[in-house]
Each structure stands twice: as C-alpha cells, then as structure tokens.
Design a protein around this nucleic acid. Structure first.
Lengths: 351, 351
DNA sequence: CTGAAAGACTAAATCGCTTTATTAGAGCCT
DNA sequence: AGGCTCTAATAAAGCGATTTAGTCTTTCAG
C-alpha cells in the first residue's frame, strides 16, 4: 500500500504501522495484562520490577505500539469524546465559541465531533442521538435549542430553554441592552430603530425583552414602526441590508440603529450609506457580538461584546467537571457571563 | 439520575435509555446474530421470515435499541470517522473549508474530529498520531504542511508539499496572480505594493512565485522595497495594518496594494485611510480569498476569490472515494481549483 | 421412504483492550 | 514440614457489536 521510498531513513515513528497489545505481549513473551498495567501505569504494575517495566516500554516504543482508542473506550466505557452542536460552522459566532471549547477539551485529552444542523428540525433531533450512539460523554449546543431528555451531561451556550439536565451559559442580557441603550441615550438619541433576530435564533426573544426593559428604565419609548424583524436562514450581511432598506423606505425618522448582531449591522451600514445617510453623522449604529471584523469596518463598529471564546471555554470546563464528578445531583443550572460595550466609530453624539 | 417529571408523557424515544443488542435479543428470545442480521439488512437475513423481521424491528423501536458505534467500529474495523487538521478555528479560511467538508461527510454517514494545531510543531506531529489512534479512516489537513508517512488516506487543502499518499487540493495560483495583476495593470497601475504571507502559511511561497511570474509576463517590475512580509502568529487585520504603516513610513510611492488575504487587506485599508490615502482614489487594494465580510467593507473589497467551500467539499468527496476504493494505487496526486476575480469598490483606474 | 435442499435460526469467535481473580514460586518463620 | 507473605506475573471475562460456520427442522423430488 504505502511503499516507502527509502526504507532506511524511517525517521519518524509515524511511518511504521501500529501494532496491537497482543502482538507486543507476544513479542515480549509476557501477558497482555502485564503490558497493559505498565503502559497505563496502573497500580497493578507496582509488583512488576523496574527492569521488566523498562523492557516493556522500550519494546512499545520500538514497535510503535499505540493503543487502539476504540477498544479502550469500549472496555472502559469512557470515550473521552464530546459532541458539539452548532447551527453552522462558518458563522463567526460558532467559530469563536468552538475555538474556546477546543482549547480546553484537547488539553484535557478529549476530542470532539462537530455537527451543524442548519436549523433543520430533523437534524436537530437526529444528531444528538447519533452522537450518543457514538458514545459521546457530553454535549455542547451552541445557539441551539436542545431537545429534552438527553442521557448525557449537556451545556447550552445561549440556549435559553430551561431543560432539566442542561447547564445554560448565558449572557447578562439586561446588562447588554442597558449598555447599548445607555450609550445611545447619553449621546442624545431618542429615535432608535431596532433589528430583531430571526425567530429560530435562541437569543432573539430574551434580547428583545431586555431591550424593552432597558428602554423603559431609561425613559425611552420604542416605536414599533422602527422595529424590523429578520427573516430567512441566511446569516449574511445581506439580510441586514434588506431590512434596513425597508426601514428607510418606510420614511420614519431614526437617528440610531441597534442591530441584532455585527453581521447585520454591517449590512445595515451599507444600506444607510447607499441611501445617503452617513454613519455616524446622521445615524449611529450599534452592533452585537464584537466579531473580529467589527473593529475593521469603516467606520469601526460600536458593539456590545459577548465574550464568545470565554463562553466556549466555560462550556467545556463545566462539561468536563460534570462528566468527571460522579455526583450529577446539583450541577449548575445557569452560568451568566458579562457583556461589555466597545465604543468605536459608528456612534456619535446627535447633532 | 434523570428523574422524568412526567413519566407518562415520554414522547420522544431519546428519553429512554438505550439498550444493548444482547438484551434486545434476550427480550425477543432470539439470538444476537438474528437480530443483528435483520437490523443491518444483511444478506443473511433473507432466511428470516418477514414476520419475525417485523417483530424484531418493532421491539428495537420500542426498546429504543441503538447500536453502539464503538463496538461496531471495533468489530468491523471501520470507524466512519475522519480527522480534520486546521491551523485555527477562526471565522475565515478554515471555517469555510470545514463547512464544505462537513456537508459531504455527514451526508455520507461520517463524523469528524477537528483539531487545531496553531502552528505548534509538537501538535502538528502529535495530532495525526492521536487521530490515528482514534481510528480515523482518513485525514484532511487545511492550510497545513502534513508530515510524511501517514498510514491513512490524506488530503491537503492548500498544503503545497509533495508527500506520498497525500492528495493536494490547490488553487491555480498562477491564474490567481494573473487575474489580480492583470486587473491592476489594466487600470494603469505600475507601482504595486505587496503584502506577503507569513512563513508558516503553506500558500506563501507558491503565491509569491506566481506573482513574480505574472508580473514578468505582464511587463511589470516588482520593486522589492514595496514588498512587506507578515510576521507573527496572529491572523487579525491588525497585522496588515502594521505592515502597511511601515510601508507608508518608508515613503516609497505606490498606487496599488495586493494583500496576501482579505483580512490583512482590511487592516491595510484602515492604515491607508488613517494616513490620509483614499481607497480607491489614491490607492487600489486587492485582497485574496473573498471572505464573507469582503463584500461588506467600505469600500467593498476587490479580491481574488478562492472557492473555499468547494475545496472543502472536494476534499471530503475525494477522501471518501479513496477510503472506499480498495485500490489505493493510483489516487489523485493533485486537484486544481480555479480562482475568480471579484471586482468591487476598492480598486479604480489610476488617475 | 430417502437424501438433498431450503428455511430458520444459533453458537461461538473475534475486534483490541482493561481488569479481576488466581497462581506459582521464593523466602522466611516457627 | 507446613504455613505465611511477597513477588511476579497470568488466565480469562467482558465491553457490544459482526460474522462464520454450523445445527436442527421441514419440504419435496425421485
């Protein structure tokens, strides 16, 4: 199959085929058990003399022994694998959370499967089952409403459903809304337009409620005619462009716009610009999330930052703790993380 | 553990614990073999009467039988799992390729592990081995120089190393360079600055060579003093900002800038703007990749588009073909994909 | 009435490991 | 000599499937 060009220069161990415990044991003239004990530094190995242990390790190295993880998982009933369920990989949101997740998991010797459901109900139902068939020890759902009744510890990042057995990692939404509106209000804005998230996004409802709350606390009134709702599966700036165009067409006056997220804010700014409205001179725009490119828009985007990487990290840490803690009785129901307002060039004092 | 609130309303099958083949067989009073035959629609099942088959399937459904994938993999020596090695899970390059990969893999019943090496040499060496221990049937390396001597079929997306056993999926770089330079040249630009990629990026060398080639074909001379090289691990626009600032500080005249990728182009535009140079009036900027936000920059970014999703898709398709084809003798060594020039607002005729 | 073929299954090996229980011998004590 | 403990291991069960090689009926042609 893989005829090596120069069999004499096999530098890396990777080049030689891997060997089973059985053949290693046979080669050594020892039992599989003995070898297993030593390789795993199991307490049972203490009766095996150092000399023999060295012999075993040496042979393992030379014959390139690498235990088959499948067999080990099956036997130990531990797969050291978890499942990550995201709406879509290519979105900035999921990618950032995932990178936080990965940091912790791989460090702890876990691997993970990623599956993206693209908001399809059938996949949303099927994937958790498939993952469980593959013996994942836990599940992290990102921006996804997980079904009830999972058999394994689960974490929802921005899941917003109170499901037994699931730890929710959520942003402090009232604070987030307050940060944004306070900022706009302090700049003198009163006529604020809003882009609401799609219905399938699990953040949509709570975010909107928080906005209404914050507005009333600040004495701002929300004009329903300045509120547009995103529709459709896509998560490209195009959507923000569309709804903003509609908003402009309606003719209602607004001096500020608070978008559901940065991506749509970017589309919105484009639409405003094309309509001859300058940002931030005529309209101030606030985004949400603080994705990488937010800082590099023109103008740079003022936004409510979600600590997405940290949320992923927290998700992973909490999940592993739940997996290794034998007592699952009082797992954390909710972990709240704090937003921060990043003021950049897309907002300015009302003139 | 999971005390169900209302045990009478167990709607979804997910709520009941899964059961083993053994217990299912016992419950039915049949052998495991018989059940296995039927569940897998194996040819051996043809001697089992329809009536019994139905009984088996019914019981499987009711008792929520879901075969343990670990056990199955171990026995069949097929894991239906592949490994994906990326530099970093970010919102840009890797995420797009991954979404292409995922599309095909999941559809075909494969799952995949993602690992990111962050350019660390130890991880680059270790991860392929760990993945093989986990019995992945193939490997896709994205923008990563894979080590030699893998025991499994492997695909490198923009890998640029001629490693036996690896199928390379590469962009037609000479065409890419030609597209960009032709465009700039036709707009009258002669003094073109270049941002070269970091040394660790596998595209860097071939891209630069293609640029030199194309330039000489077009009769353009490259002024070495207008070439800056990116340094450092980061892949944020900040880096592009920095090198462009240096470029400007050097005082050399240039009317166009070709960036290693869109992300750095975005940073570069920022730097140009802050230095009082207008894009595209004073300087035309061409990016590379066509990431999502490229279209929504201000000005919208002219860029050489890499079909990243398609490259991921091709990688997955090719890999699965290699896995299922028993004859690995003449696997494809290289698959070339074509770039396209997306002309937007960041380039203009020299004035 | 017999032998072969078909029908309806089953027993048991196997994948590669972990882990419990057991053993065989050496050394020491009484 | 017999009984202990300690050392240095090993045998074998088991994880949960798949799969090969049967076994026991029944049917049916000759």
């Amino acid at each position: 199959m893989s005829r090596s060009k120069s069999p004499t220069t096999n530098r890396t161990p990777a080049q030689r085929p891997t060997i089973s415990l059985k053949s290693l044991a046979e080669h050594l003239g020892l039992s599989q058990a003995a070898v297993s004990f030593v390789m795993n530094r199991s307490p049972n190995a203490k009766s095996i003399p150092h000399h023999t242990q060295e012999l075993i390790r040496k042979a393992a190295r030379e014959l390139n022994y690498r235990p088959n993880h499948l067999a080990r998982s099956l036997r130990k009933q531990r797969s050291y694998t978890i499942g990550v369920l995201v709406p879509e990989i290519s979105e900035g949101y999921a990618a950032l959370v995932m990178s936080g997740i990965e940091d912790h998991l791989l460090q702890e010797g876990y691997f993970y499967f990623v599956v993206s459901h693209r908001h399809r109900a059938d996949l949303l139902e099927e994937y958790p089952l498939l993952l469980q068939q593959r013996a994942v020890e836990g599940l992290i759902a990102v921006d996804t409403a997980v079904a009830e009744g999972l058999q394994i510890p689960s974490i929802a990042v921005s899941g917003h459903r109170d499901v037994p057995g699931v730890t929710n990692i959520v942003l402090n939404h009232s604070r987030a809304a307050m940060l944004a509106l306070e900022h706009l209000s302090s700049l003198g804005h009163k006529n604020i337009a809003f882009i609401k998230g799609q219905e399938f996004s699990s953040d949509t409802v709570v975010r909107w409620e928080s906005i209404c709350d914050a507005a009333s606390k600040l004495g701002l009134t929300i004009d329903e005619r300045l509120v547009v709702q995103l529709k459709g599966e896509s998560s490209s700036p195009e959507l923000g462009y569309q709804v903003t165009t509609e908003l402009l067409a309606s003719g209602r006056l607004f001096t500020a716009l608070f978008s559901f997220n940065d991506v749509y804010a970017i589309g919105a700014i484009q639409a405003l610009r094309e309509a001859g409205r300058r940002v931030p001179d005529n309209v101030s725009v606030v985004g949400f999330d603080d994705i990488q490119s937010a800082a590099y828009q023109n103008p740079a985007l003022t936004t409510v930052r979600q600590p997405l990487r940290e949320m992923g990290l927290t998700a992973a840490t909490t999940l592993l703790r739940r997996i290794t803690n034998t007592t699952e009785e009082n797992y954390p129901k909710e972990i709240v993380v704090e937003p921060s307002l990043i003021v950049r060039g897309s907002t300015a004092r009302l003139q």
